[in-house]
Amino acid sequence: MADTVISIKDAVVSYREDVALRGVSLDVIAGEFVGIIGPNGAGKTTLLTVVNGMGKLLSGRVTVLGDSLRSGNGRSLRKRVGYVAQVDNIDPRMPMDVREVVMIGRFGVLGLFRRPGKSDWQIVDEMLELVGMTHLARRPIGHLSGGEQQRVAIARCLVQEPELFLLDEPTASLDWKAQSEILELVKEIHNSRKLTTLFVTHDLDALPHTCDRVVLMKDGLIVDDGPPDQLISTSSLSQLYDLPESVVEARRPHMHVKE
């Protein structure tokens, strides 16, 4: 039987008065590529932060990579989970170059008091090559375009040598070309490194065709979960995004949606 690497049972997470997750349960098996879609505010990012130990559970149980998540063990878990967060504005004057930013991914694995050695820099250079950023390795990080910064974020995540690959809206605010290149890259990395991937997006155009499974979220709940061919239909999207079916139909040629 395949290994379950993520097991979430009745997770409830709340930020002040807003309940971000209202009793979510999800099991993910090793090697799966899961797309999590839903409108803004559905709880998708919160679900990822629960998996990497940064979200604080009000109730429920989360087991990730065999460890039950408690308040004290989030940090050790995060070293094994690669997380590509949503694009943040980077100060153009930030005194760090691309190579140094990618190296941050090794810091948790290295632990306190240990400096990066030759082998760590070698891993950084390999990952920069993998994401096609070797030519910009010495460029100040703030001088990159959105798509380039996202490639750096993916390289930073990979130098961690993670077992889980979490991506939060990795293609948001990117142009069409950068978006399709990042999707291609993520797909390739997932397959070649045999990772378990959770890919969050609110944009169906960005949903990788290769998802083994799609989870639909709305208002802090998982409303559906299954293979993309069965789930992503005009009627399910109409309900998910509160749009009339005619509007979903009109947009369909641009989306990977069956009738």
Partner: peptide, 20 residues
């Protein structure tokens, strides 16, 4: 703690997410 400081001033959430 140069490397921890470097990561934290770059982006605190990223530093947290790599286990620092």
């Amino acid at each position: 703690f140069f490397k921890e400081i470097q990561a934290t001033v770059f982006n605190r959430n990223i530093a947290l997410s790599v286990g620092l």
